[in-house]
Amino acid sequence: MNITGEDLILACSAIGAGLAVIAGIGPGIGQGIAAGHAAAAVGRNPGAKGDIMSTMLLGQAVAETTGLYGLLIAMLLLFVKPLI
């Protein structure tokens, strides 16, 4: 079986895509912390549930960005194949 340079680059791109999605760990932890604190806040002050929910969702969506950058890199490596 002959492995050409292009095949090698494709295989390495697949490994790189897998490594890039590890970026999802950070936002996962961050969103979990935000949700936990929001739950504690609702427990302390159930009247402010609406405000707490919207603030939490806004913060979580902003924190999600870094994970999405990793996903974007993985997509680029797999489908656009910039290295070939």
Binding site: A61, V62, E64, T65, L68, Y69, L71, L72, M75
Partner: peptide, 16 residues
């Protein structure tokens, strides 16, 4: 850049 990439990546991930 971050505003546009955030929305783009979110919607694209759903589409994919």
């Amino acid at each position: 850049i971050s505003l546009s990439l955030r929305m783009f990546a979110n919607v694209l991930s759903g589409t994919v």
